[in-house]
Every structure is written in C-alpha cells, then in structure tokens.
C-alpha cells in the first residue's frame, strides 16, 4: 500500500504506471508479469479485474479479459492477487473495474476488502462524475483515495466536478474512444492537461493510446504527472503467450526504455 502523493512528491519526473488485467493469461503468470513491471521501475500500478462486457476497452484488453476469465479469475481471487502484489512491494495500486462487479460484491464490502488487500483507489469505468456520490463516499469511508476520469470532450464545469471528487489523481483520457494501441499520440491530450492544470493541483495522469516510449515522453513533456500504459503492454502478453521468458524479457525492456524516456523530461516543465 502507498499513497499517490508520496510517489508524486518523491519523483522529479512523470510516474510510470503500467496497466495489466489481473489473471491474464493465468494467475501465476500474471503475478510474475506484475513483479517484472515493479522490478522494471513501475511507480504505481493500474490493475483491472476482468469483465465479460468491457465497453470502454478495445480488442487488446477485451482479449486479455477473456483469457483471464477463462483461467478462472474472479473479484475475490483478484483481491487475493492484490494482497500478494502488496506483499512483494508496497506500491500504490489503482484498480479499474466495471460497476456490476463491485455492485454484486457490495460496494462498501468491496472497498473495505480492497483496502485490506493493500489497494489505493478504485476507478469504475462505467460510472461518470454525475454518479460520484454512489461510490466516492464509500471509498473515503474505507480509507481509499478516489480517481475519476476526465475526457477531452468534458466541458470545464464537468472538469470542476471531477476535481472536486478526486483525491488521488485525475485519470485523464487522451482521446475519444476505447483503450487500444495507436500509431500516433492523440493531439487532444495536451489541451486537456492544460485545462486541468489551470483548475487544480491534483496530479494528472494520462492514459489510453500510449503505445511507445516516445509517446510517454511526449505526454510527460505535455505536463502529465503520470503516464498509464495499458494495451501496449497487454499486447506484449498476447504476442508471447507461448514463450514466457520472452514475454517477461520484452516487458522488462519496454518498461526500462519507457522509464528512460520519462527521465529525459524534468519535473519543472510539468508546472503549467
């Protein structure tokens, strides 16, 4: 367990935040993948519980969800997984879930158990800021931080609501669309980061479509406090299902290169 602010305070660069689906392609491999990412210098982890109908996700993460579900992953097992990750290293862990999974578990019970497992925040992909009251108070009661999404098409009044409800970091969606790798990095991210920076001191972490160390460097240069890399990493898993050594090796190399890219951008540029 760890607090986001401690991480952001301790870095003079943008945080590297890898995303994985818990249990992809199976629990054991998934744990080794997450440990590889931690060893490669992840500052924060973003982990997803697989869902049968992930409407915010593109094909790469959809396939990861299917692999993890086929291998038997459940919300209960995901919490046990998170406890194992926390035991390996006390790193802040943001969870990404679809609402029905925590609704069935019971929102308060889920947040309590997630906190107990060492988690830091829960982002619910299909709950907008309009329904923050349904989940944010429960998160705070459980001692968790809160994370909500900001998107390029959010007007400033909505961004203000996002700011109001967010204690951890603002999950800033770089584009209009689902998760997935992109050739070019979205031009919509920079203006959104700038709008947020005018509104708040709360850290701004950018995700969706960040597919290369160069993209990561660019987002950091655009002023992001953290860079969330999902589909690109999950694709490495998909491409190396039959060769685990190769899988860990490629993940390690990609993250090391990304970290180096982030180190080339010093923090004082992120102030505006």
């Amino acid at each position: 367990m760890g607090r986001y602010q401690d991480v952001f305070d301790s870095l003079n660069r943008a945080a590297m935040i890898p995303f994985f689906v818990i249990g992809d392609p199976d629990t054991e491999t998934s744990l080794r993948i997450v440990k590889t990412a931690i060893d490669a210098g992840a500052d924060i982890l973003e982990l997803g519980i697989p869902f049968s109908d992930p409407v915010a996700d593109g094909p790469t993460i959809q396939k990861a969800d299917i692999r993890a579900l086929k291998a038997g992953m459940t919300p209960q097992k995901a919490l046990a997984f998170i406890a194992q990750v926390s035991a390996y290293k006390p790193i802040p862990i943001g969870l990404l879930v679809y609402y029905n999974l925590i609704y069935q578990y019971g929102v308060d019970a889920f947040y309590r158990d997630f906190k107990q497992a060492g988690g830091t925040s829960v982002l619910v992909a299909d709950v907008s800021i309009d329904d923050a009251e349904e989940i944010a108070p429960a998160a705070l009661r459980a001692g968790l931080e809160t994370v909500f999404m900001a998107t390029p098409n959010c007007p400033d009044e909505r961004l203000q609501q996002v700011v109001k409800y967010t204690t951890g970091f603002i999950y800033t969606v770089s584009l209009l669309g689902t998760t997935g790798e992109r050739q070019r990095f979205s031009t919509l991210a920079k203006p959104l980061i700038q709008r947020l920076k005018r509104l708040t001191q709360t850290p701004v972490c950018v995700g969706f479509g960040i597919s290369s160390p160069e993209h990561a460097r660019q987002v950091a240069a655009d002023g992001a406090n953290g860079v969330i890399i999902g589909s690109r990493l999950v694709k490495i898993i998909e491409d190396n299902l039959n060769d685990k050594d190769q899988l860990y090796c490629q993940l390690q190399a990609f993250l090391a290169e990304t970290l180096n890219a982030l180190k080339t951008v010093q923090d004082d540029t992120s102030a505006n």
């Binding site: 915010a56 709950v127 907008s128 909500f148 999404m149 998107t151 959010c154 909505r158 669309g177």
Partner: peptide, 11 residues
C-alpha cells in the same frame, strides 16, 4: 435505470 456509461459518452 440511470446512465452508467464511461465519462466520454456523457456529452
């Protein structure tokens, strides 16, 4: 009821 959709769809 309600409208449980990702933020990006709200507008």
């Amino acid at each position: 009821g309600g409208f449980y959709v990702p933020e990006v769809l709200i507008p």
